[in-house]
Protein backbone atom coordinates (compact mmCIF):
# COMPACT_ATOMS: atom_id res chain seq x y z
CA UNK A 1 0.00 0.00 0.00
CA UNK A 2 1.51 3.23 -1.08
CA UNK A 3 0.80 6.14 1.18
CA UNK A 4 0.42 9.35 -0.73
CA UNK A 5 1.91 12.11 1.30
CA UNK A 6 0.45 15.52 1.03
CA UNK A 7 3.95 16.66 0.35
CA UNK A 8 5.04 18.96 3.16
CA UNK A 9 7.09 21.91 2.06
CA UNK A 10 9.95 20.58 4.09
CA UNK A 11 10.49 17.53 1.97
CA UNK A 12 11.67 19.31 -1.11
CA UNK A 13 8.95 17.96 -3.33
CA UNK A 14 10.10 14.40 -2.98
CA UNK A 15 7.48 11.75 -2.63
CA UNK A 16 8.06 9.08 -0.12
CA UNK A 17 6.87 5.58 -0.62
CA UNK A 18 6.14 3.38 2.33
CA UNK A 19 9.01 0.99 2.81
CA UNK A 20 10.15 -1.33 5.49
CA UNK A 21 13.66 -2.58 4.89
CA UNK A 22 16.63 -3.62 6.87
CA UNK A 23 19.61 -1.34 7.44
CA UNK A 24 21.52 -3.01 4.61
CA UNK A 25 18.95 -2.04 2.02
CA UNK A 26 18.86 1.46 3.45
CA UNK A 27 22.58 2.09 3.24
CA UNK A 28 22.46 0.48 -0.20
CA UNK A 29 19.93 3.06 -1.28
CA UNK A 30 22.05 5.87 0.10
CA UNK A 31 25.04 4.55 -1.83
CA UNK A 32 22.83 4.32 -4.89
CA UNK A 33 21.83 7.96 -4.50
CA UNK A 34 25.45 9.01 -4.21
CA UNK A 35 26.42 6.96 -7.27
CA UNK A 36 23.58 8.52 -9.23
CA UNK A 37 24.58 12.00 -8.13
CA UNK A 38 28.18 11.30 -9.15
CA UNK A 39 27.04 10.19 -12.58
CA UNK A 40 25.00 13.35 -12.90
CA UNK A 41 28.03 15.33 -11.83
CA UNK A 42 30.14 13.83 -14.64
CA UNK A 43 27.43 14.60 -17.19
CA UNK A 44 27.17 18.18 -15.94
CA UNK A 45 30.96 18.61 -16.03
CA UNK A 46 31.29 17.30 -19.58
CA UNK A 47 28.32 19.36 -20.75
CA UNK A 48 29.48 22.60 -19.15
CA UNK A 49 33.09 22.31 -20.25
CA UNK A 50 32.27 21.41 -23.83
CA UNK A 51 29.83 24.31 -23.98
CA UNK A 52 32.53 26.68 -22.76
CA UNK A 53 35.02 25.06 -25.07
CA UNK A 54 32.80 25.72 -28.07
CA UNK A 55 31.72 29.19 -26.95
CA UNK A 56 35.31 30.35 -26.58
CA UNK A 57 35.98 29.29 -30.13
CA UNK A 58 32.84 31.00 -31.40
CA UNK A 59 33.92 34.40 -30.12
CA UNK A 60 35.55 36.29 -32.95
CA UNK A 61 39.29 36.63 -32.49
CA UNK A 62 42.08 34.18 -33.15
CA UNK A 63 44.49 33.66 -30.25
CA UNK A 64 47.39 33.29 -32.66
CA UNK A 65 46.62 36.68 -34.16
CA UNK A 66 46.15 38.30 -30.74
CA UNK A 67 49.47 36.81 -29.62
CA UNK A 68 51.12 38.29 -32.68
CA UNK A 69 49.92 41.71 -31.62
CA UNK A 70 48.58 44.55 -33.72
CA UNK A 71 50.28 45.75 -36.87
CA UNK A 72 51.40 43.86 -39.93
CA UNK A 73 54.87 42.77 -38.85
CA UNK A 74 53.86 39.12 -38.64
CA UNK A 75 53.28 37.10 -41.78
CA UNK A 76 50.35 34.85 -42.41
CA UNK A 77 52.75 31.86 -42.52
CA UNK A 78 53.95 32.63 -38.99
CA UNK A 79 50.39 32.87 -37.72
CA UNK A 80 49.51 29.58 -39.39
CA UNK A 81 52.53 27.98 -37.76
CA UNK A 82 51.53 29.28 -34.34
CA UNK A 83 48.04 27.92 -34.86
CA UNK A 84 49.51 24.52 -35.69
CA UNK A 85 51.80 24.60 -32.65
CA UNK A 86 48.91 25.47 -30.38
CA UNK A 87 46.88 22.62 -31.87
CA UNK A 88 44.20 25.02 -33.08
CA UNK A 89 44.09 23.37 -36.50
CA UNK A 90 42.88 20.04 -35.16
CA UNK A 91 39.18 19.23 -35.44
CA UNK A 92 37.24 20.51 -32.41
CA UNK A 93 36.42 17.07 -30.96
CA UNK A 94 40.09 16.17 -31.05
CA UNK A 95 41.03 19.44 -29.36
CA UNK A 96 38.41 18.86 -26.68
CA UNK A 97 39.52 15.27 -26.12
CA UNK A 98 43.16 16.28 -25.82
CA UNK A 99 42.28 19.01 -23.38
CA UNK A 100 39.87 17.03 -21.18
CA UNK A 101 42.16 13.98 -20.93
CA UNK A 102 45.08 16.19 -19.97
CA UNK A 103 42.89 18.03 -17.48
CA UNK A 104 41.84 14.73 -15.95
CA UNK A 105 45.55 14.12 -15.26
CA UNK A 106 45.79 17.56 -13.66
CA UNK A 107 47.52 19.16 -16.64
CA UNK A 108 45.62 22.25 -17.74
CA UNK A 109 48.24 23.35 -20.22
CA UNK A 110 50.03 26.67 -20.42
CA UNK A 111 48.53 30.11 -20.66
CA UNK A 112 48.81 31.38 -24.23
CA UNK A 113 49.38 34.92 -23.02
CA UNK A 114 51.03 34.81 -19.62
CA UNK A 115 53.39 31.94 -20.35
CA UNK A 116 52.86 30.30 -16.95
CA UNK A 117 51.22 26.92 -16.53
CA UNK A 118 47.50 27.27 -15.89
CA UNK A 119 47.80 25.22 -12.69
CA UNK A 120 50.20 27.76 -11.23
CA UNK A 121 47.99 30.66 -12.27
CA UNK A 122 44.92 29.02 -10.88
CA UNK A 123 46.34 27.88 -7.56
CA UNK A 124 46.73 31.23 -5.81
CA UNK A 125 43.64 32.75 -7.33
CA UNK A 126 41.45 29.84 -6.40
CA UNK A 127 42.50 30.34 -2.79
CA UNK A 128 41.35 33.97 -2.87
CA UNK A 129 38.01 33.12 -4.46
CA UNK A 130 37.43 30.21 -2.11
CA UNK A 131 38.25 32.36 0.91
CA UNK A 132 35.91 35.10 -0.21
CA UNK A 133 33.06 32.63 -0.84
CA UNK A 134 33.60 30.82 2.45
CA UNK A 135 33.75 34.03 4.49
CA UNK A 136 30.56 35.27 2.86
CA UNK A 137 28.85 31.95 3.44
CA UNK A 138 29.62 31.75 7.14
CA UNK A 139 29.07 35.44 7.74
CA UNK A 140 25.63 35.09 6.17
CA UNK A 141 24.72 31.93 8.05
CA UNK A 142 25.96 33.29 11.37
CA UNK A 143 23.79 36.35 10.90
CA UNK A 144 20.72 35.01 9.12
CA UNK A 145 19.94 31.93 11.20
CA UNK A 146 19.76 33.59 14.65
CA UNK A 147 17.88 36.59 13.26
CA UNK A 148 15.37 34.37 11.46
CA UNK A 149 14.79 32.37 14.64
CA UNK A 150 14.16 35.54 16.62
CA UNK A 151 11.91 36.95 13.88
CA UNK A 152 9.80 33.81 13.75
CA UNK A 153 9.63 33.58 17.53
CA UNK A 154 8.28 37.12 17.77
CA UNK A 155 6.56 37.19 14.40
CA UNK A 156 4.59 40.30 13.65
CA UNK A 157 6.61 42.41 16.09
CA UNK A 158 8.19 45.61 14.84
CA UNK A 159 11.64 44.03 14.80
CA UNK A 160 10.35 41.15 12.71
CA UNK A 161 8.80 43.50 10.18
CA UNK A 162 11.99 45.53 10.00
CA UNK A 163 14.07 42.39 9.50
CA UNK A 164 11.79 41.24 6.71
CA UNK A 165 12.04 44.59 4.98
CA UNK A 166 15.83 44.46 5.13
CA UNK A 167 15.66 40.85 3.98
CA UNK A 168 13.58 41.47 0.88
CA UNK A 169 15.76 44.44 0.02
CA UNK A 170 18.83 42.27 0.45
CA UNK A 171 17.51 39.70 -1.99
CA UNK A 172 16.82 42.33 -4.62
CA UNK A 173 20.14 44.18 -4.42
CA UNK A 174 22.83 42.84 -6.80
CA UNK A 175 26.17 42.15 -5.17
CA UNK A 176 28.25 44.30 -7.54
CA UNK A 177 26.00 47.29 -6.85
CA UNK A 178 26.31 46.75 -3.13
CA UNK A 179 30.08 46.47 -3.64
CA UNK A 180 30.18 49.90 -5.27
CA UNK A 181 28.01 51.34 -2.51
CA UNK A 182 30.29 49.93 0.17
CA UNK A 183 33.32 51.33 -1.60
CA UNK A 184 31.80 54.80 -1.68
CA UNK A 185 30.67 54.66 1.95
CA UNK A 186 33.79 53.15 3.49
CA UNK A 187 36.58 54.68 1.49
CA UNK A 188 38.92 56.40 3.90
CA UNK A 189 37.81 54.18 6.79
CA UNK A 190 38.74 50.76 5.51
CA UNK A 191 41.25 49.68 2.90
CA UNK A 192 39.19 49.09 -0.21
CA UNK A 193 41.38 47.48 -2.79
CA UNK A 194 43.83 44.64 -2.84
CA UNK A 195 44.50 41.45 -1.00
CA UNK A 196 46.77 40.45 1.86
CA UNK A 197 47.36 36.72 2.43
CA UNK A 198 46.45 35.50 5.89
CA UNK A 199 49.96 34.10 6.28
CA UNK A 200 51.39 37.60 5.94
CA UNK A 201 49.14 39.46 8.35
CA UNK A 202 45.94 38.01 9.70
CA UNK A 203 44.59 41.42 10.72
CA UNK A 204 45.26 42.99 7.33
CA UNK A 205 43.82 39.93 5.65
CA UNK A 206 40.56 40.23 7.59
CA UNK A 207 40.37 43.98 7.13
CA UNK A 208 40.74 43.62 3.37
CA UNK A 209 38.17 40.86 3.14
CA UNK A 210 35.41 42.43 5.25
CA UNK A 211 33.81 44.61 2.61
CA UNK A 212 33.97 42.03 -0.20
CA UNK A 213 32.53 39.37 2.09
CA UNK A 214 29.69 41.68 3.12
CA UNK A 215 28.95 42.65 -0.48
CA UNK A 216 28.88 39.04 -1.59
CA UNK A 217 27.14 37.59 1.46
CA UNK A 218 24.31 40.11 1.87
CA UNK A 219 22.00 38.62 -0.75
CA UNK A 220 22.75 35.11 0.44
CA UNK A 221 22.07 36.09 4.04
CA UNK A 222 18.76 37.68 3.04
CA UNK A 223 17.69 34.54 1.23
CA UNK A 224 18.66 32.24 4.10
CA UNK A 225 16.84 34.55 6.50
CA UNK A 226 13.64 34.58 4.44
CA UNK A 227 13.65 30.83 3.87
CA UNK A 228 14.35 29.92 7.45
CA UNK A 229 11.86 32.41 8.83
CA UNK A 230 9.11 31.25 6.48
CA UNK A 231 9.91 27.62 7.30
CA UNK A 232 9.74 28.31 11.02
CA UNK A 233 6.47 30.18 10.76
CA UNK A 234 5.04 27.20 8.93
CA UNK A 235 6.33 24.55 11.30
CA UNK A 236 5.32 26.57 14.37
CA UNK A 237 1.76 26.50 13.06
CA UNK A 238 1.88 22.84 12.08
CA UNK A 239 -0.23 20.06 13.49
CA UNK A 240 2.71 18.19 14.99
CA UNK A 241 3.86 21.25 16.91
CA UNK A 242 0.33 21.55 18.22
CA UNK A 243 0.46 17.87 19.21
CA UNK A 244 3.74 18.37 21.04
CA UNK A 245 2.22 21.30 22.89
CA UNK A 246 -0.98 19.37 23.60
CA UNK A 247 1.11 16.74 25.38
CA UNK A 248 2.80 19.29 27.56
CA UNK A 249 6.24 19.22 25.98
CA UNK A 250 8.03 22.39 27.16
CA UNK A 251 7.98 25.28 24.75
CA UNK A 252 11.77 25.50 24.30
CA UNK A 253 11.87 21.87 23.34
CA UNK A 254 8.92 22.22 20.99
CA UNK A 255 10.71 25.12 19.35
CA UNK A 256 14.08 23.43 19.03
CA UNK A 257 13.31 19.79 18.40
CA UNK A 258 10.07 20.09 16.48
CA UNK A 259 9.84 23.48 14.78
CA UNK A 260 13.43 24.56 14.15
CA UNK A 261 14.78 21.23 13.05
CA UNK A 262 12.05 20.71 10.49
CA UNK A 263 12.17 24.28 9.25
CA UNK A 264 15.89 23.91 8.63
CA UNK A 265 15.39 21.34 5.86
CA UNK A 266 14.26 23.75 3.13
CA UNK A 267 16.87 26.21 4.36
CA UNK A 268 19.51 23.57 3.80
CA UNK A 269 18.33 23.11 0.23
CA UNK A 270 18.52 26.82 -0.45
CA UNK A 271 21.98 27.00 1.10
CA UNK A 272 23.15 24.20 -1.17
CA UNK A 273 21.83 25.78 -4.33
CA UNK A 274 23.06 29.22 -3.39
CA UNK A 275 26.53 28.12 -2.31
CA UNK A 276 27.29 27.57 -6.00
CA UNK A 277 25.80 30.91 -6.96
CA UNK A 278 28.02 32.47 -4.30
CA UNK A 279 31.07 31.37 -6.33
CA UNK A 280 29.88 33.11 -9.46
CA UNK A 281 28.95 36.20 -7.45
CA UNK A 282 32.49 36.17 -6.08
CA UNK A 283 33.87 36.65 -9.60
CA UNK A 284 32.04 39.99 -9.89
CA UNK A 285 32.85 41.17 -6.40
CA UNK A 286 36.54 40.40 -6.88
CA UNK A 287 36.63 42.74 -9.83
CA UNK A 288 35.02 45.53 -7.82
CA UNK A 289 37.55 45.21 -4.98
CA UNK A 290 40.55 44.35 -7.14
CA UNK A 291 41.04 41.01 -5.44
CA UNK A 292 43.40 38.70 -7.34
CA UNK A 293 40.89 35.85 -7.59
CA UNK A 294 39.58 33.73 -10.40
CA UNK A 295 37.11 36.40 -11.48
CA UNK A 296 39.82 38.65 -12.76
CA UNK A 297 41.68 35.73 -14.28
CA UNK A 298 38.59 34.77 -16.26
CA UNK A 299 37.96 38.31 -17.45
CA UNK A 300 41.56 38.69 -18.58
CA UNK A 301 41.45 35.26 -20.17
CA UNK A 302 38.31 35.99 -22.16
CA UNK A 303 39.63 39.34 -23.37
CA UNK A 304 42.88 37.83 -24.61
CA UNK A 305 41.25 34.63 -25.91
CA UNK A 306 43.43 32.67 -23.52
CA UNK A 307 41.55 29.41 -24.11
CA UNK A 308 43.36 27.15 -21.61
CA UNK A 309 42.96 29.64 -18.74
CA UNK A 310 39.25 30.22 -19.27
CA UNK A 311 38.50 26.55 -19.78
CA UNK A 312 40.39 25.54 -16.67
CA UNK A 313 38.63 28.21 -14.58
CA UNK A 314 35.23 27.10 -15.76
CA UNK A 315 36.06 23.46 -15.14
CA UNK A 316 37.15 24.24 -11.59
CA UNK A 317 33.97 26.21 -10.91
CA UNK A 318 31.78 23.48 -12.37
CA UNK A 319 33.49 20.85 -10.26
CA UNK A 320 33.09 22.93 -7.09
CA UNK A 321 29.45 23.57 -7.95
CA UNK A 322 28.78 19.91 -8.48
CA UNK A 323 30.67 18.79 -5.38
CA UNK A 324 28.79 21.26 -3.18
CA UNK A 325 25.48 20.06 -4.56
CA UNK A 326 26.47 16.46 -4.07
CA UNK A 327 27.47 17.20 -0.51
CA UNK A 328 24.14 18.88 0.13
CA UNK A 329 22.29 15.92 -1.34
CA UNK A 330 24.08 13.59 1.03
CA UNK A 331 23.55 15.87 4.03
CA UNK A 332 19.89 16.21 3.15
CA UNK A 333 19.48 12.47 2.85
CA UNK A 334 21.12 12.02 6.24
CA UNK A 335 18.91 14.61 7.89
CA UNK A 336 15.54 13.83 6.32
CA UNK A 337 14.34 10.26 6.86
CA UNK A 338 11.71 10.65 4.17
CA UNK A 339 14.50 10.97 1.63
CA UNK A 340 16.88 8.55 3.30
CA UNK A 341 14.37 5.77 3.64
CA UNK A 342 12.52 6.11 0.40
CA UNK A 343 13.43 4.60 -2.89
CA UNK A 344 14.51 7.93 -4.19
CA UNK A 345 15.35 9.57 -7.40
CA UNK A 346 17.74 12.38 -6.65
Amino acid sequence: MAVQLTVPAADGGRRAARRRDGPVARSGRLAGRVALSLLQAVVVAVGATSAVFLLMRLIPGDPARILAGPGGSVTEEQIAMTRRELGLDDPLPVQYWDWITAAARGDFGTSLVLGETVSDLLGDRLVVTAQLSAYSFWLAVALAIPVSVAAARWQGAAADRAARLVGSTGIAVPSFWLALLLIIVFQGYLPIFGYVPASESLVDHVVHMILPAVALGAGFAALVFETNRAGLVETLGSDYVRTARAFGIPEWRVFGRYALRNAFLPTLTIMGIQAGALMSGALLVENAFALPGMGRLIVQGVLSRDYPVVQACILVIVVIFVVVNLLMDVIYALVDPRVRRSRGRA
Binding site: D11, S238, Y240, R242, T243, R257, Y258, N262, L265
Partner: peptide, 8 residues
Protein backbone atom coordinates in the same frame (compact mmCIF):
# COMPACT_ATOMS: atom_id res chain seq x y z
CA UNK B 1 -0.24 11.96 9.69
CA UNK B 2 0.23 15.67 10.15
CA UNK B 3 -0.19 15.36 13.91
CA UNK B 4 3.11 13.50 14.22
CA UNK B 5 6.54 14.97 13.60
CA UNK B 6 7.54 13.70 10.15
CA UNK B 7 11.27 13.51 10.81
CA UNK B 8 11.29 11.82 14.21
Amino acid sequence: LTALNPVM
